[in-house]
Nucleic acid binder design. Structure first.
Length: 272
DNA sequence: GAAAGTGTTGAAAG
DNA sequence: TCTTTCAACACTTT
């Protein structure tokens, strides 16, 4: 259930294990060829086998492995996890794919809801078309935010969840950002004041960076039996805190649904 | 035991 | 064109 900070944490963890290593082959597991979105398993192997991983990085919520002839991209969606190796304790029925490296190490893609996908792209035009600016990129600036919000009549929460508007935010961090900025999640984008736009501009990278510093919020399995847990969960102020007291004003936090997503907010801090 | 809920995304419908 | 709804899936909670 990874958002930008969780994906970045995965990238950080795997960088030393994958960088400059060569892919031997990839397999789909448990009779789930759909895990490879862009190619059949045999076609994908023709592209990636014997290719060296020259860079591992993140764009939005995609993990990207640069190869000499293209990019192997992994999207974890709701429940995807990457795991180094396997043990007898593993429930392998949720493994959907396997990356075999020349050095014999095995990276498993574990995904109990099976929404996660692996893609191979010659270039990243498709991703760049689908994804808006990175929250840490200079192109995500006041002018971009103001211009886009001013012409949107929809609600701010779904806007921030829209990856084409800004890449990387998901349900947890949108709730956290809106709480910090004191913006009600159903506020119309074009009704947000300049001061609140400025708050959004600084809170978005700030909250994401802080979460990255703590390896994200949610549990991420990097190796079998080792349930690596993001430590940012301790610093959440609003997400999952319904019926608890707002840390700012002590009002009881409410949970509502906004465009079908569970949404937490403080009725006093985030007036509509 | 049935139904709703879960951190994502894109296709389809409005 | 823009915004909302729903399905893809499997497991847990109500």
């Amino acid at each position: 259930m990874p958002e930008l900070p969780e994906v970045q944490s995965v990238v950080n963890y795997f960088k030393p294990l994958l960088l400059n290593e060569t892919i031997h082959s990839v397999n789909h597991l448990n009779d789930y060829p759909k895990v490879f979105e862009t190619h059949t398993t045999s076609e994908l192997n023709k592209h990636v086998s014997n290719k060296k991983i020259t860079r591992i990085w993140r764009r939005g919520k995609y993990i990207i492995l640069n190869l000499s002839n293209g990019h192997l991209c992994i999207h974890l969606r709701m429940t995807g996890q990457l795991q180094v190796g396997s043990s007898l304790n593993d429930n392998t029925k949720h493994f959907t794919a396997l990356i075999n490296l020349k050095n014999k190490s095995k990276i498993y893609f574990k995904d109990y809801r099976k929404f996660g996908r692996i893609y191979f792209f010659k270039n990243l035009d498709i991703l760049n078309y689908k994804l808006g600016p990175e929250p840490f990129d200079p192109s995500f600036n006041y002018k971009y935010l103001k211009n886009n919000l001013n012409k949107s009549r929809g609600m701010i929460k779904p806007k921030l969840l829209n990856q084409k508007f800004i890449a990387g935010l998901g349900n947890i961090y949108v709730d956290e950002v809106l709480w910090k900025c004191r913006v009600h999640p159903i506020t119309r984008c074009d009704k947000i004041s300049a001061i609140k736009i400025k708050r959004l501009l600084s809170a978005i990278p700030e909250i994401l960076q802080k979460s990255i510093d703590f390896n994200g919020t949610t549990i991420i399995n990097f190796s079998p039996g080792n349930k690596t847990k993001g430590e940012f969960a301790k610093y959440l102020n609003i997400f999952g805190k319904q019926n608890q007291h707002c840390s700012h004003c002590k009002t009881i936090i409410k949970k509502i649904f906004v465009s079908q997503r569970g949404t937490h907010f403080c009725p006093k801090c985030q007036k509509y």
